[in-house]
Structure formats: structure tokens, C-alpha cells
Nucleic acid binder design. Structure first.
Lengths: 342, 342
DNA sequence: TTTTAGCACTCTCACTCTTGGAGTGCTAAT
DNA sequence: ATTAGCACTCCAAGAGTGAGAGTGCTAAAA
């Protein structure tokens, strides 16, 4: 593998990203700055194919990059540049749209912005709620035997759930229960809320147990909601404008999209690029996923990224993903700080 | 138009619904109980074509029903039967899944169930929140300068919004404001909440105006959320399994799906069937929409229905849509009654 | 030893041509 | 009013064709 071969590989990838057509030796010789004949390039391309970086759709077609080809290209030739100041300001504004104060809304904004900027499908898997604590529990009567449970976390996540009881509670009962669960839940970390904990709470209710246990059950259900990694999407419609996907692949994606919360599992930091069907997978074929992680304090709190065609402008997209995840890490840490000050 | 022609039309529609292929005179003569030759049927079909009930994709193909053909077929031959008792019980259970006590969750269940039962895309446009009143307003401090506004309506709709102030409120201020908005909003109908009303409220805050107006603004935003007809979907993925749609049509649908809230505009009661591209439209071509309305008290509160291929099993689907809307009307009225007893 | 020109070879894509089948409309007989 | 018969139309699928793009190999040139 020499300098020229690398350059040829880069040229093939570049051209393929641009046109989507297999690239032939002749067009490369036109593109490359070093002047060698197409025959020389042909020889080099044959070697690159043997090395596994290129492949031919069929005998007399040009070459197309393989997974490893893309990888090498990205490693050697994509140097993500820092975004210019004005672009960063623009992105910051996008994150703040619609008075986004809570984690949920900030992430929603990030995903929406990313989808818009890249014209791809953007996705975020947020597990940050798990690391926060219950900051507020309220039980609000809303009608005949109807009660709303309200759970607010230190990260600004707000969840509610309606619950119907067998009997109406009198003021005393309601006050007792509210006080009871506030004492037991406020300040408790979401991660620590277990089924056993709620079972103990029910048991400790004593005489009130029968009447109040549905409320506890509702709270338990809310807490499992909070524990779940939430996966947020935007720009799913951009999948349709891609003509390298047939309907079946899109169905497959939509049906399995929630499995994308797995994208948190990998332990690497920094930008990661995954190709569809490269491993056993949850990504669509012919697609690549550019994703990075954000943290809350020292813990990984979630991932943010895009899913686009494999022939995508990596150099343009990577800085966006990087910037957004950095920013999210910052914003999440703000929250943490605020909790400490409380 | 005689008896036999009607039967032929019905047979054509039935067969076309079954196979999706244009239907020829020969296959009809095999299906029909009255024994006439294919030549006779050919003559009748030519007449039916002239009358506008059938059409030919091309000269030497069989016949396909037109819009009017479908209409006539539905009017004359689709007699929706009442669902058997056990089926109704099954549907009732589907509506109650996941402890659905609020309008929102019940409608969500109805849409999900309908999509599952019919393998189509189901949609509901609910404007019922407009007819309810605010039953509860709460302002809950959740952190440094952060407050959550909680709005609960008599129909069980629960909305919340986070809001960040310039300063922290002390207990006195918070209590004052909570009391103030509770007095002004609780019991007020959603329909009556106008921008002017909120402007007056801000003005009346006097000295507190500057500090508290962001809270009022958030409440105003929540109230406009409530006023919006919410459109709920389920089974959108079923669009993909249809092979009479290309990607462009699906994109068109997804991009315009929120305009479907218009489906409330028509004033008819009972089951309505609309065909795509028949009028100027928001429905996909080749599709039909089977929709009916549900009421709250005496007012139309929303619509529920499905969007499927034009060649759909009307006799099977219509009873479902009918039953669900009847049931929704019932459940909505329960709510109203409960309010009255309050 | 590396590069290049030349050439035969391969494969696809777009196009045309052909053919079989399904279905019709018309006519004349029942 | 119905039916059998027949010529006609049109589509869909398959077979065949040629142009074009690109390759690999060989032998000569650098």
C-alpha cells in the first residue's frame, strides 16, 4: 500500500459519494493530480480490490468502496474541522428554540436540528433520566375517584399518569398519602427505584393498603417509564427521498427502530461510524450511522447521531454530531450543578 | 339499470376487492348464481361502463370499479351487521388496555386497536378538549428558577410545561400567583380562553407583572395546545405493505397528515366513506377513508376512522368503525356526567 | 522494475421485436 | 333477449440486439 494507492482509494470514495455510480479507472485518472495513465490506475485498483477496500458490482463495472474502504477513507482523509463561530451560534440557537428548558425538549431540539441540517434521519437515545432523582411527587384529585400522579425529576423530566380508585379519598387520606410518598420518594435516585421498594411501601401502608395501592402501582409504572431509555427521532421522512432503499427496508427500519436504544451499549467514546449490515445489525443496509455520546457528569447519559446513506458527506456531518454531543454534555452538567446548589 | 346489472356490478367489485386484478366477463359468469353466458354479461358490463360504474384500464382488459361503482356497491350491498357479543367484549377490552382513564389514552387505544384489527392506518381527530373546562391548575417549583405549570381539564387531559423565570419566587409570591390563576382559570371553558383574557390577567397582576408574566405566557401557550385538534395515528407502517402506493405517495401522506384534522369539517353524521383523489383532497390516491364521528353530549367531539386501499373489505371494517365511535360517544358522555356530579 | 498503449473480452442497460393470452365488441343465429 | 363465434386489441413477458463502459492481459516503452 503506497501513497498513490491511497490517493486512488480516496478519489474513488469521493467520486462515488458524489455520483453514486461505480467509478472507473478513466475518470480517476482525470481527477487525480498525479498524472498516471488509466492502465496504471487499473492495476492499482485491482490491488486495492484484493486488499478488500474496493469491489466490483459486476465484472465490467467500475469500483465501489467496501466497508473497509470507507473506514480507511474516513480514518485517513476525513479531518473534521471545528465549526466556525457563527455556525456554532446558529446551532446554539436551534437548541434553545421553543423555550427548551428540560432535557427532553433540548434533546428534541437537537434531534430536529440535526435532521434538518443533514437531511438525514436523526436519533437520540437518552438514558439520562436514570441518573437523576425524583424532585417532586404530587397527587392531584381531578374528578370522581380520579387522581393524577405527577413525577418530576431533577433533570426536568415531567411525567404524569391518571389513576382511578375504588373510592374517593377524603382530605385526610389524601394528605396522608401525599406526605407518605413524598417522604419516601423525593430525593431518591431513579436507578434505585425497584419493584421491591414499592412492594415495601405498599406493605407499610397498613390499613390504607387496599385503598391506596393502585396509586402506588401507578407511581411504580411511571418510574419504569422513567428508567426506560427514551429514543427520539426526527427526519424519518428523509428515508423516503433515498432511492437506494426499497419499501421493505424502510418497513424493517420502522419496525425495529426502538432497538436503536442499543446504540448506547458500545463503550467507545467520541464519534463512531457504523455501517448497516456490517455486523449483525439494527441499521438499514447501505446506510451508515454517525453517532457520538454525551455525558452527565462522569457517566454516559446518551447518544446522538444520524442515519444516512453510506455515501454521505462525512466531513460535513461529523462536526455537527460532535458539536451537538459536546453541547449536550455541557447542558446536562448544568443541570447537575443546579441540583447540587439546591 | 336492472337487477342483473346490479348483481354483475357487485360481483365485479367483490372480485376486484379479492384479487386486485381487472375482472373479465368470463370469471363473472363463473361466480354469478344466475346462469347467463359471458356474452350477456359483456353487454351488461358495457352498459355499466357507460353509466360510469365501471372502467377499463385499457381496451382489452377486464373492468375495474369507478368511484361511483364503489359508492353504489357500498350503498346497495354492504349491510354492516352488528358485531357479535363476544367481539364487542373483545373490543371493549382493547379500549381499556393500559388503564386508559383519560380521553387521550382511550382514543389512543381506539386508534391502535382499529389499526390492528383492520391492518390499515387508523386516525382520530379529537377536538373534545375544546369543550371541557379547566379543572385544575398547579404551579410547581422544580429547581432553580424553574417552574412547571400543570393544567388538567375536566376531560382528563393533562398538560404540563416547564418555565424558567428571571428570579426565584418566595413562598408568598408563589402562593399568591397559584391562588390568583386558580381563581381565574378553574372552571373556565377551554373555548373561552382567549389571548385577551390572558392579557387582562397579566395587566391585573400589578406589581408582580414583570416577575410573573412568563408564567402566564406559559399557561397561555398550554391553553392554545389544548385548543388544537389533536390528530392521533396508528398503523402508519401498514401503508408500506400496500403495493399500490409508491414512495412518493407515502411521503405526500406523511407530510400532509396533519391536515387530516379537516376530517372534522364535514357535517354528516354516521359512517362516511371518502375516496382519494375524488375531490380535492388530503387522502392518498387509490385509497378510501372510512370514518365516523363521536359526540360529547350534543356536540361533535371528533372523528375516528381508517385509511386503506379502495379495494378493502367494507363489510368487515365499517362495523368496527361504527362500534368504536359509538363507544367513544358513550365514554365521552360518561365524562360529562361525572363533571356534572362534581 | 514500473508504466503505458492496445486490444480482446465481459457485462449491463436500453431498446426492439415477438408471441401468447386474456378480454372485448360485433354479428348472426337461436 | 340471449348466445356462440370470431376478429381484433392490448399488455406482459421473454428473446434478441447493439452500444457503451470498464476490465484484465500482454507486450512495448521508460
Amino acid at each position: 500500500m503506497n501513497e498513490r494507492k491511497l490517493k486512488i482509494l480516496a478519489a474513488v470514495v469521493d467520486e462515488y459519494i458524489k455520483t453514486g455510480e461505480p467509478v472507473g479507472s478513466k475518470s480517476i485518472s482525470g481527477i487525480l493530480d498525479i498524472k498516471v495513465s488509466s492502465a496504471t490506475i487499473r492495476n492499482d485498483m485491482a490491488v486495492l480490490e484484493q486488499m478488500g477496500y474496493l469491489e466490483q458490482p459486476h465484472t465490467s463495472a467500475g469500483r465501489v468502496p467496501t466497508f473497509s474502504g470507507y473506514r480507511l477513507y474516513i480514518d485517513k482523509f476525513v479531518n473534521p474541522v471545528a465549526l466556525p463561530e457563527e455556525e456554532r451560534i446558529r446551532l446554539d440557537n436551534m437548541l434553545e428554540e421553543n423555550n427548551a428548558f428540560t432535557e427532553e425538549t433540548i434533546i428534541q431540539n437537537a434531534v430536529t436540528a440535526l435532521a434538518e441540517l443533514t437531511q438525514c434521519t436523526a436519533v437520540a437515545a437518552n438514558s439520562s433520566p436514570k441518573f437523576s432523582v425524583i424532585s417532586k411527587v404530587e397527587v392531584i384529585p381531578t374528578g370522581k375517584r380520579m387522581y393524577v400522579i405527577l413525577l418530576i425529576t431533577s433533570s426536568g423530566n415531567i411525567k404524569n399518569k391518571a389513576c382511578r380508585l375504588e373510592f374517593d379519598l377524603n382530605n385526610e387520606q389524601l394528605e396522608f398519602f401525599t406526605k407518605y410518598i413524598q417522604e419516601h420518594l423525593q430525593g431518591v435516585s431513579i436507578e434505585d427505584m425497584s419493584e421491591e421498594m414499592f412492594e415495601k411501601m405498599v406493605a407499610a401502608l397498613g390499613a390504607y393498603m387496599v385503598i391506596l395501592s393502585p396509586l402506588v402501582k401507578s407511581i411504580y409504572e411511571l418510574s419504569t417509564d422513567l428508567k426506560q431509555n427514551s429514543v427520539t427521532f426526527s427526519g424519518e421522512e428523509n428515508l423516503f427521498s433515498r432511492n437506494d432503499l426499497d419499501k421493505m427496508e424502510i418497513v424493517r427500519f420502522i419496525e425495529h427502530k426502538n432497538e436503536l436504544s442499543n446504540l448506547l451499549d458500545d463503550t467507545f467514546n467520541g464519534i463512531q461510524i457504523k455501517f448497516g449490515h456490517e455486523n449483525d445489525d439494527f441499521i438499514i443496509g447501505n446506510s451508515s450511522m454517525i453517532v457520538s455520546k454525551y455525558k452527565k457528569g462522569s457517566k454516559t447519559a446518551g447518544s446522538l447521531g444520524i442515519i444516512g446513506p453510506m455515501r454521505i458527506n462525512y466531513a460535513k456531518i461529523i462536526p455537527y454530531v460532535e458539536y451537538f454531543t459536546e453541547k449536550l454534555t455541557l447542558l446536562m452538567s448544568d443541570d447537575v450543578q443546579e441540583d447540587d446548589n439546591d
